[in-house]
Design a protein around this nucleic acid. Structure first.
Lengths: 152, 152
DNA sequence: CTGCTAACGCGAACTGTTAGCAATTATACC
DNA sequence: GGTATAATTGCTAACAGTTCGCGTTAGCAG
């Protein structure tokens, strides 16, 4: 992949270095589509680099974000999730387990122009996120539904 | 207002008590349209009840939320903001100062049906939030723009 | 009025994340 | 290749926002 070259270049251009840790953090993020949290990514990276520290993962995620190689997805007060797919696309988050998946929708939606901006404000963008139940949690929910009143 | 009666009833129905603190937290939240954070609300409440503790504000915000008397607005990793207006409406958040305002838009948008749900998932809703600059920050930005090359 | 217990105030704990610092190491230069 | 140098590491401590545990206070049903 020449994305690797691109990144290396960009890192160098900004006076940075391509360390083992940095490379592996990015590779790990790029290797999954699960939109991991920093902690999940830390676990993943540790499989290849057992002595890496959480701080390094956070640091490198920030760098990758700044260089446009990752995006951060914030969902409420929960831990941020990260995505190596920086294309404009939407996400859906499971209300029960927090898992995140990609949503197919044309990001054509020029919502920010069809909207009643409050007086004096300038709209620069928007965030659209779906909420729902992932397959696993839907199943779990159904089971607890017909077995007993168990909510949650 | 008979909203007060409603709430009192609901609180009692769920085995709760209408304490001075709980009533005042709600009144304070209902009295502003600024979408305060818990900390801001704490300050506001303290004007009337100087000895209230932050924990009590958090507790009561949770209760009010559960009873449908307040909604929580989560913006990224920042502190949650709260809104006594539980009608379906959208928000815009200032990128510079974090201030939140209401947006006029018909929430008719049946986005959740026009969207390519990932296989096995169920969509239960969505969150749409706008991002922008509030009047104050826009002014500040413009000033720093023509006085010096100051970007950002 | 009395008793039960939900809710309070306090402080400590917890989670997700960032900052400071000495030790390490990728890179530029010879 | 070897060497200097400063970006990056791993560590620990700090931080913000929020929740929890606990002994005390006070709503409210009887």
């Amino acid at each position: 992949m020449d994305k690797d070259k691109d990144l290396r270049q960009k890192v160098h251009d900004t006076g940075g270095r391509m360390t083992r840790q940095r490379r592996i953090v990015l590779e790990a993020l790029a290797s999954v589509t699960s939109h991991p949290t920093a902690a999940e990514l830390y676990d993943l990276v540790r499989e290849r680099l057992p002595s890496i520290s959480p701080g390094t993962v956070y640091r490198n995620l920030r760098v990758l974000k700044e260089l446009g190689y990752a995006q951060e997805l914030c969902f409420g007060s929960h831990a941020s999730r990260f995505d190596a797919n920086v294309e404009n696309h939407y996400h859906i988050r499971c209300e029960r387990c927090g898992r995140v998946a990609d949503v197919d929708a044309d990001p054509d939606t020029d919502l920010d122009h069809r909207v009643g901006t409050p007086p004096g404000w300038t709209v620069t963008g928007y965030r659209l996120e779906f909420r729902g139940l992932c397959p696993d949690c839907k199943r779990a929910q159904e089971h607890s539904d017909d077995q007993e009143g168990e909510t949650q």
